[in-house]
Computed example of a mutant assay.
Amino acid sequence: MKTVTLGRTGITVCKNGFGALPVQRVSAEYAGRLLRKAYDAGVNFFDTARSYTDSEEKMGLALSDVREKIFIATKTPSTTVEGFWRDLETSLRLLKTDYIDIYQFHNPSFCPKPGDGTGLYEAMQEAKAQGKIRFIGITNHRPHVAEEAVESGLYDTLQFPFCYLASDRDVALVNRCKEQNMGFISMKGLSGGLITNSAAAYAWQDQFDNALPIWGVQRESELDEFLSYIDNPPSMDDPKIKAVIEKDRRELVGNFCRSCGYCLPCPAGINIPQCARMSQLIRRSPSAGWLTEESQKMMLNIENCLDCGHCKSKCPYGLDTPNLLKANLADYRDILAGKAAV
C-alpha cells in the first residue's frame, strides 16, 4: 500500500484519503457503508467539516469504534473566537471523540496569525494545549492566502485544490509545502466532476509524494474505483492516461468554474457552480441528465442575473462570473436547439 506523510505532523496514511463532503447527500446507513468499506480496505484518513451539515455525525456513527486506528481532519468556518469554540465542541461531540488530529480554518479570506486582533490563531493554540486538537491546519481556494500560510510557518497542513488541471503556481505551492515540511492535502482532485477519469486523476497525484488526495465519493461504485488503486495503482507511464490528461488540459485549463461555491448565495437564486460550468458538464457526461425540464429551468434563471457583482467579487479564482454564466446560457440554448432539430 502506498502511503504519504503529512510533513512535520508525522501522520503517515494511505495515499487514498476519504473526503466526506458528499456523504451529507446520502442516508446515514449508506454513508456508514461507504465509510466502513473504505476503512476495511485500508483508508485511514478522513476529512470532513462543520459546514458539511451531518457529515461529522455520520462519520462518528460509522467509525467511532476504530477511532484510534484512523486520522480525522475537520474544519471551522468561524470568524470569531466564540464560534471557534462552539464549532470545536460540536465537532468533538458529533465525531464521538475527545480530540481532532488536524483542525483546520475553513477557507478564511485572510491568513489568521497571532496578534492579528481576531484571536483565532490563539484559540487554535489553546485548543492544542488542552489536547483537543493535535495539529493546526488551514484550507483555502485563494492562492495568495495559501502562499502566505505556507510562508508563515504557523500551520502544520494546507488543504488546497489540486488536480491535473493545476497551474504552474499551484504546483509550485505543493513543492513549497514539501520544502517547508508542511503537510499538503489535495482537495477537488476531480475538479468538481469535470475530470471523469479517476485512474488519470490518481496517477497524476501519485507524482507528488507529499500530496494526500482526499476523494469525495457518494456512490459505492466510485469508492470501488479508488480502492482498486491501492493494490493496482495506475501510472503516468501508461500512454492512455497521458493522452486523457493532455486532452482534458487542452479543453479545460483556464477560464472555468471550479465549483467551490464561495460565490453563493446568489441574490437572484442562480445555481452558479452548476450553471457556470454547464458547457463542460454537458459534454463530459451523458447529456440527457442536463437537458431535463428542471435543468432548463435552472439555466434560464441566468436571465434574472442582477449584475450586482457579488459572485465576481467572491470568486477566489478571479473569474468574470456574470459573463461566464451568460456564455454558458448561450451555449446551452444552442445545444437545446440542435437537440430539437434532430
Score class of each variant (00 low, 15 high):
residue 248 D to V: 03
residue 247 K to R: 12
residue 252 L to Q: 04
residue 258 R to N: 14
residue 260 C to P: 15
residue 242 K to F: 06
residue 260 C to S: 14
residue 263 C to T: 12
residue 256 F to H: 12
residue 272 I to S: 15
residue 260 C to E: 13
residue 249 R to T: 09
residue 248 D to P: 04
residue 275 C to Y: 07
residue 265 P to L: 10
residue 264 L to N: 11
residue 243 A to D: 12
residue 275 C to E: 06
residue 270 I to Q: 03
residue 274 Q to G: 05
residue 243 A to F: 00
residue 258 R to C: 10
residue 260 C to H: 15
residue 254 G to S: 12
residue 250 R to C: 11
residue 264 L to K: 10
residue 266 C to E: 09
residue 274 Q to F: 15
residue 270 I to R: 02
residue 245 I to D: 03
residue 263 C to Q: 14
residue 265 P to T: 13
residue 243 A to I: 02
residue 251 E to G: 05
residue 272 I to R: 03
residue 259 S to D: 06
residue 261 G to T: 14
residue 261 G to R: 15
residue 273 P to W: 04
residue 252 L to F: 08
residue 239 P to V: 11
residue 269 G to V: 09
residue 277 R to N: 13
residue 253 V to E: 00
residue 261 G to D: 13
residue 275 C to H: 05
residue 257 C to Y: 01
residue 261 G to Y: 11
residue 248 D to T: 00
residue 254 G to Q: 01
residue 248 D to C: 00
residue 261 G to V: 10
residue 267 P to Y: 15
residue 267 P to F: 14
residue 241 I to C: 08
residue 239 P to R: 10
residue 267 P to D: 09
residue 254 G to W: 07
residue 251 E to T: 08
residue 242 K to H: 04
residue 246 E to Y: 10
residue 250 R to I: 13
residue 240 K to H: 03
residue 268 A to I: 07
residue 273 P to Y: 02
residue 265 P to R: 13
residue 259 S to W: 07
residue 241 I to A: 06
residue 262 Y to W: 15
residue 250 R to L: 10
residue 277 R to P: 02
residue 269 G to M: 07
residue 269 G to E: 02
residue 244 V to C: 08
residue 273 P to G: 03
residue 276 A to C: 08
residue 253 V to N: 01
residue 276 A to E: 00
residue 270 I to E: 01
residue 246 E to M: 03
residue 270 I to W: 05
residue 241 I to P: 11
residue 249 R to F: 00
residue 242 K to M: 04
residue 247 K to S: 08
residue 254 G to V: 07
residue 260 C to Y: 15
residue 270 I to N: 02
residue 250 R to T: 06
residue 246 E to F: 05
residue 263 C to S: 09
residue 271 N to D: 06
residue 253 V to R: 00
residue 266 C to Y: 14
residue 269 G to K: 12
residue 249 R to A: 09
residue 276 A to T: 01
residue 252 L to E: 06
residue 269 G to S: 09
residue 258 R to Y: 13
residue 272 I to D: 08
residue 270 I to D: 02
residue 247 K to V: 05
residue 258 R to M: 14
residue 254 G to M: 05
residue 257 C to W: 04
residue 274 Q to D: 08
residue 250 R to S: 11
residue 275 C to K: 08
residue 273 P to N: 02
residue 263 C to W: 15
residue 255 N to K: 11
residue 274 Q to C: 03
residue 267 P to Q: 07
residue 254 G to D: 07
residue 247 K to D: 14
residue 254 G to L: 01
residue 252 L to K: 03
residue 256 F to L: 13
residue 265 P to S: 13
residue 262 Y to H: 14
residue 268 A to Q: 12
residue 271 N to M: 06
residue 244 V to P: 01
residue 248 D to G: 00
residue 252 L to N: 03
residue 253 V to H: 00
residue 277 R to I: 11
residue 260 C to G: 15
residue 248 D to W: 01
residue 266 C to S: 14
residue 272 I to G: 06
residue 272 I to W: 04
residue 240 K to D: 15
residue 248 D to L: 00
residue 256 F to S: 05
residue 274 Q to P: 05
residue 266 C to N: 08
residue 246 E to I: 09
residue 273 P to A: 02
residue 265 P to A: 12
residue 244 V to S: 04
residue 258 R to P: 15
residue 259 S to H: 15
residue 260 C to K: 10
residue 261 G to Q: 15
residue 275 C to G: 03
residue 261 G to C: 11
residue 242 K to C: 01
residue 253 V to L: 00
residue 263 C to M: 15
residue 265 P to H: 09
residue 243 A to T: 02
residue 251 E to R: 12
residue 273 P to R: 02
residue 250 R to W: 05
residue 245 I to Q: 03
residue 277 R to Y: 06
residue 273 P to H: 06
residue 243 A to Q: 13
